[in-house]
Amino acid sequence: MKLFSSRLSAIAAGALLAVSLVQAPAHAQLPDISAITAPSSQAAFDANRAWNGLADQINSALPQGSSVPRNIIPQPAPINPPAAAWRPAGPQPVGNGHSGELSVNGRGYLIHVPHGYNPSRAWPVMVAYSAYQDTAEHFRGYSRLRESAVGRDAIIVYPRAIGRSWEGSPTAASRPGQDIAFVRAMINDLHRHYNIDRGRIYATGMSTGGGMAAVSACHMADIFAGVAGVSGAYYAPVNAGCQNIPVAFLAYHGTGDTLTNYHGGVRHGVPYLGVPQMFSSYERRNGCHVGRISQAPVGFNATRVSANGCSKPVQSIKVHGSNHTWWYNPSVADDMWAVLSHVRK
């Protein structure tokens, strides 16, 4: 502190000498620095403001090419208070490496907790939506998310559908907005019990569940960082009136799908969007170089089509000749995680 005050005094003395050599304004006065005992942000700000007023007066009187410095006192960087530490609402309801069921607002969701879960850090979340006329338990089994890299690295939740369907589909039993409200409540409820990373929440789903993954990207883009639809049923409402927020979008789809054709069609008397239409809409939404794509093989029977220059990834994985299914070769669970796990809000 002694060195700091000496440096300031030396500069002030130099300024006085400069004033004596030129005709400075009569009302120019040096700021009182005797009260500064430590270079706190406020003290430094006040002293610099006073000094700068004098410096401007001196510099206006000095010959061109000469000047005294401004902001002579270094200002410490502001210290931001640390974010409040996450605290659980109670004991962990489902233990590490186990599956169970929780509920919120009278509606249940299955949960799987990784073996390595540690509440000292925030964990990503994968929301997994079952297909039409399917159960959360059945989807949990055949999707093999728990057995994949997803189950190792993320908490997985399988929300229960009303009437075994999801909003956005003509088969939905829920009211518009009802499933969206439930998913939002589910994420908040999950965060009461587990330390989740709000910047790394993802969704996937099969068929109509893939459509609900698209609903998540469209109407809950403030929550979800990325989604992956598998043999998705993309009826128009799942991609209409979306939030203008980039979200990673992956579509795994067979080119021989007879239920939801790769290029779109009509089902249950209602048109649905094809993968190319969904791909194109996310190209625009994610700021990609529209129409500039790259292609690469995936396994022995699929091709990855990727948009370029995007703020968030946009990909369609075409499984050649395949029908309406969830794939193990390529493993959609591992493949989607290899892409989505690197994406943050």
Results as ranks from 00 to 15, higher is better:
G163H: 14
G95D: 13
R146K: 14
R175H: 15
G163Q: 05
W166S: 03
E101A: 15
Y117W: 13
G95H: 00
H112T: 07
H115Q: 13
P124H: 09
G95T: 02
V150N: 02
W166G: 02
S99K: 07
S165L: 13
G151N: 06
I156R: 00
Y142W: 15
R107W: 10
A172K: 09
E101Y: 08
H98L: 12
A131S: 14
I156Q: 07
E147D: 14
D134Y: 00
P119D: 07
A173M: 14
G97C: 05
L102E: 07
P114C: 09
L102W: 13
A136I: 07
V150W: 05
S148D: 12
G151V: 04
A131V: 03
T135Y: 10
W123D: 05
R121V: 09
E137W: 01
P119F: 10
H115Y: 13
I162Q: 09
Y129R: 01
E167M: 11
P159R: 03
A131Y: 14
R140W: 05
P176L: 14
G106D: 15
P93F: 14
P176K: 06
P93A: 07
P124A: 12
V94M: 13
G95R: 00
S148H: 04
N105T: 05
G151A: 07
A173D: 02
H98S: 12
R152V: 09
I162H: 10
Y142E: 02
H138G: 11
M126I: 06
Y142K: 01
S143R: 01
V150L: 05
R144P: 00
L145S: 04
S169P: 10
Y117C: 05
S165H: 11
Y129K: 01
I155M: 08
I111K: 02
G108H: 13
E147K: 04
G163E: 05
V104H: 11
P170A: 09
A172L: 08
S103A: 10
I156Y: 06
E101R: 07
G168T: 05
Y158M: 14
R144I: 04
R121E: 12
D153Y: 12
S103N: 15
S174Y: 06
V113F: 13
R140V: 01
V125I: 02
A161K: 00
G151P: 08
G141D: 13
W166L: 11
N96D: 08
R146F: 03
P176C: 14
A131G: 10
E137F: 03
L102C: 03
V104W: 08
V104F: 09
S103I: 08
Y132C: 02
L110Q: 07
I111R: 02
S99M: 11
H138W: 06
R164C: 08
E137H: 05
P176G: 15
G151E: 09
S148W: 12
E147N: 05
N118V: 10
H138L: 11
V104E: 00
P114F: 09
R175I: 11
G141Y: 07
G108Y: 14
Y117G: 01
